[in-house]
Design a protein around this nucleic acid. Structure first.
Lengths: 239, 239
DNA sequence: ACCTGAACACCGTTCAAGT
DNA sequence: ACCTGAACACCGTTCAAGT
């Protein structure tokens, strides 16, 4: 019951263990800490991350982490940045539409490689060079397609917001605001009909179905079409 | 220093205070708890929310809250839902473009009324009737405009993802992934030039500027145009 | 240079004891 | 029916003591 941990029950002659352990088996590194945290997130989600949990994976005391990391927040930022650094953007082909699609798909693939860490990448605001790299790439693509800087920035922001929003709902399991899981089709149809939401009931079969790949492609297509038509179209009319 | 709180220093004859307080001045309610939490979030942000902090605002012990709320998570859900319930959607006019804009603007205004609570509304997945109401509205608008159910659901999801993504970066202060604050224009321009991100440097003045209203309208316009042209355009070609 | 023991000031949550 | 005292099992983080 209350036999949690014997506080200091070493042998009588044993001096209390302090200082660095005798043999240096596991040289601790910032990279190792980030790696352990990421694999912990993969296994248990972001909520499972704690200084003590991460440290346990490395066979180390939690407080040791503070020699390499500024705190929990800094650690989570580091994880997000690590994922972002792994992003290998494809070479531009010169076709704006094709290149926008390629960047979108690459970003998605990279993010979904660690689904439970995705919210970190999508939500935390990072200003490192790694985070800025995709921005630079998108901007240069838009500029090369004839976009003036002001509109390029507008389009950049719209593109990022849409991709982030789409991936976010892809990654948060369960029904996101306005989303409907299969339970609507099953048990709750009666509730819905009583609530006076006929269109929702009518669309229930489609709402229950959710093919992430198809959904992403649909949104990407809508967006790329809109962007390219705007870039190729009227080039004056600033205000 | 260590004189934090005297543990049980009532008068010698005073029996330890237990049970409900003598006078019922503040009848505790779930609604009151939600209200206190929301105003706490307005003042101190979501990170300032704790059972003890909320309870203090109500002049009550933290554990009393558990009589009305299932726990901290349930409390935060309730706050998000409360904001969503306040959403008063405008009457449809019959013009899909105008009505989409109206819904978008209403949703934005409602969300930004409590900026620091916005992430809750945008991030938490709610499946209450209140959360489903905007979905029903959007679906019925799309259907009325001649959209088949399958495509209406696609468009609904694209619309929601875009609005959520846009509002999310509007609400998270600081530079979101691919965002650049004014500090880029000031001190870090040299770093950027050295990093080989010329387009970013070129666009820095525009990146530093961020008019939320204008940004939202731009994205909304792009999106509404894309949606209406898709609805009004080809109506066959399912696959 | 780096790791840990002890400690601090917190958490969310339970449960029985009270009224 | 509802509120609280005492308590539990956690947190992130500090700092000096050690090697």
């Amino acid at each position: 019951m209350t036999t949690t941990t014997a506080p200091a029950a070493n042998g009588p002659g044993t001096p209390s263990r302090r200082g660095r352990p005798p043999k240096g088996a596991s040289t601790l590194t910032r990279a190792a800490i980030v790696g352990a945290t990421l694999s912990l997130i993969d296994d248990e989600g972001v909520e499972g991350v704690g200084m003590r949990t991460v440290a346990r994976r490395l066979g180390v005391d939690a407080k040791s982490l503070y020699n390499y990391v500024d705190g929990k927040d800094d650690l989570l930022d580091a994880v997000a940045e690590h994922i972002l650094i792994g992003l290998a953007l494809p070479e531009p082909t010169g076709s704006l539409a094709a290149d926008l699609r390629a960047v979108g798909r690459t970003f998605r693939a990279n993010t979904l490689a660690h689904p439970r860490a995705a919210a970190l990448v999508l939500t935390r605001q990072l200003d490192s060079a790694a985070a800025l790299h995709p921005t630079e790439r998108l901007l240069s693509m838009l500029r090369a397609a004839g976009c003036r800087p002001a509109e390029a920035v507008h389009l950049l922001r719209t593109l990022l917001a849409t991709v982030v929003g789409t991936l976010l709902r892809e990654v948060t399991e369960g029904p996101t605001c306005g989303e409907v899981g299969p339970e609507v089709e099953r048990g709750r149809r009666a509730d819905l009909e009583a609530s006076g939401m006929p269109t929702l009931v009518e669309a229930a079969p489609h709402l229950a179905r959710f093919d992430h790949d198809e959904e992403f492609e649909y949104t990407l297509d809508l967006l790329v079409t809109a962007v390219t038509s705007r870039v190729g179209g009227t080039s004056g009319t600033d205000r």
